[in-house]
């Protein structure tokens, strides 16, 4: 991977709001080069999305999180991907991971 792309991704992974000008200062690139590189990374799907980490407790939303481990039986012609896709359509599901070991899938769910 290009060293500059690695720099940009590490900076944005740490702070999604870092501006092209700020990134330019940290890398020695021009702001224009940074903007073009970010646009390319967005277009090619390397940068999937920008998110915000919210502390819901502070606004009185007392969510509870649970980790659920599932053992599944695969249907004919259907892999784990299809099951994972069905599960993550539930809005309560925050993450889905494929596991090796005793269980097949691990879910994080959020509720009240």
């Amino acid at each position: 991977m290009d060293e500059m792309i690695r720099h940009i991704l590490e900076i944005l992974e740490n702070d999604a709001r870092a501006s092209p000008e700020e990134i330019a200062t940290l890398t020695g690139m021009s702001a224009q080069e940074v903007s073009q590189t970010i646009a390319k990374l967005e277009d090619t799907g390397v940068i999937r999305h920008y998110k915000t980490i919210v502390d819901w407790d502070l606004v009185g939303e007392n969510y509870v999180y649970a980790v659920i481990e599932l053992k599944v039986t695969l249907e004919r012609n259907q892999g784990y991907q299809a099951i994972a896709e069905r599960i993550y359509k539930f809005p309560e599901v925050r993450s889905v991971r494929l596991l090796s070991g005793d269980y097949d899938i691990s879910l994080t769910v959020r509720g009240k």
Binding site: E3, R6, H7, E10, I11, T25, L26, T27, G28
Partner: peptide, 16 residues
Amino acid sequence: ERMVREYDRRRHFIVK
């Protein structure tokens, strides 16, 4: 290498 990249960014920042 991750730490070195972080120093490198700070280096650009501090010199500027």
